[in-house]
């Protein structure tokens, strides 16, 4: 008895061979000095809030931003460098309660689905062409952090903003080893399914706050 797999493959293999066209030249755009301007413009056009801040000052800036939004519970990754820095900075003074994502989702579901109002993650890099953040979730910084809370705060190193997806895929040799999940995020969750009218926060975060970490402005 042959399987569906064998029958499908044997039909495909019995088809006449065809010539393989070469990949014609194509190059994604380059921005040079205008890279940060493009990155910011694209993200802002997608309704994200983009701030440039120094490595020393971001926890304070974030404290002020979230205070303005009345956030009192923030999901964070306690084992990452950014997570440790946040915990250290917010240990003094008035700050939202930091909720660590330190157990499997099965034990954290109600907290993530209904309770925390914001989450802080890092991005591996930024893509100027499309205003995208490359998220590369790890055991310390899990996938759902950037998805379930209504506000997603993401830190990206200014030096790691590149021109295009093609560029970053090639220079970082992604094909050599993909993680369980990699995600490009280019704004808050949105839909235009009702009369093509844009509405934000349909299932994912309603707000995306991007902190671009660079030398002090």
């Amino acid at each position: 008895m042959t399987s569906a797999r064998d029958r499908i493959l044997s039909r495909l293999k019995s088809a006449p061979r065809r010539t393989m066209p070469e990949r014609p030249d194509w190059a994604a755009p380059r921005y040079g000095e205008g890279r940060m301007t493009q990155f910011r413009a694209m993200l802002e056009a997608a309704h994200a809030d983009v701030r440039e801040v120094s490595a020393a000052e971001w926890p304070e800036l974030l404290r002020a931003i979230l205070a303005g939004k009345g956030v009192d519970q923030v999901l964070f990754a306690p084992a990452t460098a950014a997570g440790r820095k946040l915990a250290e900075a917010w240990a003094t003074g008035e700050a939202p309660r930091l909720v660590p994502y330190d157990r499997p989702i099965e034990e954290m579901k109600p907290v993530l689905v209904h309770e925390v109002q914001a989450a802080v993650t890092t991005a591996r890099s930024g893509i100027a062409q499309t205003g995208s953040l490359v998220l590369w979730p790890t055991p310390d910084e899990p996938r759902l952090m950037s998805l379930l809370p209504p506000i997603h705060v993401v830190l990206v190193d200014k030096a790691r903003i590149v021109d295009s997806l093609a560029d970053t895929m090639a220079t970082e040799a992604w094909a050599g080893g993909m993680p369980t999940n990699a995600v490009l995020v280019s704004g808050p969750s949105k839909t235009a399914d009702i009369e093509q009218t844009l509405a934000y926060g349909v299932h994912g975060p309603k707000e995306l706050i991007v902190l671009v970490i660079g030398e002090a402005a």
């Binding site: 157990r103 499997p104 205003g131 055991p139 759902l144 999940n181 995020v185 280019s186 969750s189 994912g204």
Partner: peptide
């Protein structure tokens, strides 16, 4: 499709949850 330069999410899945990972 919709005249968007990119969709909000591009989701690249290469496997199930690995040991140590907290979700997926």
């Amino acid at each position: 499709a919709t005249g968007q330069v990119v969709t909000t999410y591009v989701n690249m899945i290469s496997g199930p949850r690995k040991p140590g990972e907290k979700d997926g």
